[in-house]
């Protein structure tokens, strides 16, 4: 019989703990590196008019509609050791293929459209006259961005980051295609569960990690609710 008691956590093997920590590390790094790019892209799409805007929008959303395996394979072609940019990256000391850093890049790319969508909406919802007011008070555009626009968009930015984090935790297809499934290097919770299901008698291990995945997801959701609730409370004044 399967063991469903909470004591499953106590039975986690060192290899399983490694997969858990690796998953968290990859998800956190993926979210952090995509954050500045996500904010910039969301702001540009919400505010600027430039030629090729539709194309940029399409490219940003591509990972959302493509099969993840295709995205992973494209990353391999572009950033792999023998890929288009691989040799250049290697020459400046960045190797992504079959490394956990590559997994973070794959997760960042997959979560990017979700992140940009949420942030773009919150930038679009900001009253432009507040930015005009900031300008008349002597603030340059850059100051206005950091003192007015960014704080007002904060709830949306948090939502975007949480979505990207959640996506990164669950990412499987693109990651396994780009960086494979190497225990201790690129084997995340998802990949470890997959591995367990491929071996006879692996169900118990898969279940242990499933419980862990559920706990992480719940904690992240509750944390995001609290952060967002507080940010919105501060901004409750927008009428």
């Amino acid at each position: 019989m399967l063991n469903l008691s909470p004591s499953v956590l106590a039975d986690l093997s060192p290899a399983e703990w490694t997969a858990i920590w690796l998953s968290l590390r990859i998800a956190v790094v993926a979210t952090l590196i995509s954050l500045p790019f996500g904010i910039f892209t969301a702001y540009a799409l919400a505010r600027w008019h430039f030629p090729g805007k539709t194309l940029v929008n399409g490219i940003v959303h591509l990972p959302l509609v493509l099969p993840p395996v295709v995205t992973g394979f494209m990353l391999l072609i572009m950033l792999g050791r023998r890929g288009v940019f691989g040799p250049f990256l290697a020459s400046i000391g960045i190797v992504l293929s079959f490394r956990w850093t590559g997994a973070a890049v794959a997760c960042a790319v997959m979560g990017f459209p979700l992140m940009v969508r949420a942030m773009r909406l919150s930038f679009e919802a900001i009253d432009r006259r507040l930015e005009l007011a900031s300008g008349t008070l002597g603030a340059s555009r850059l100051w206005t961005f950091f003192l007015v626009t960014l704080p007002l968009a904060l709830p949306g930015i948090i939502v975007g980051a949480i979505l990207a984090f959640a996506k990164a935790l669950g990412e499987f297809g693109a990651t396994i295609t780009f960086v494979s499934n190497i225990p201790g290097e690129t084997q995340t919770i998802s990949a470890a569960i997959y591995t367990f299901t491929q071996v006879p008698g692996g169900d118990e291990g898969a279940l242990r990690l499933t419980v862990v995945a559920i706990i992480i997801a719940l904690v992240a959701l509750i944390a995001s609710e609290i952060i967002q609730w507080q940010a919105e409370k501060r901004l409750a004044s927008i009428e």
Binding site: D127, R129, L130, L132, T136, L152, L235, A236
Partner: peptide, 11 residues
């Protein structure tokens, strides 16, 4: 500049 609707920073 003082606007018609005061445009105070809500945050």
């Amino acid at each position: 500049l003082v606007f018609q609707d005061s445009n105070l920073f809500p945050h």
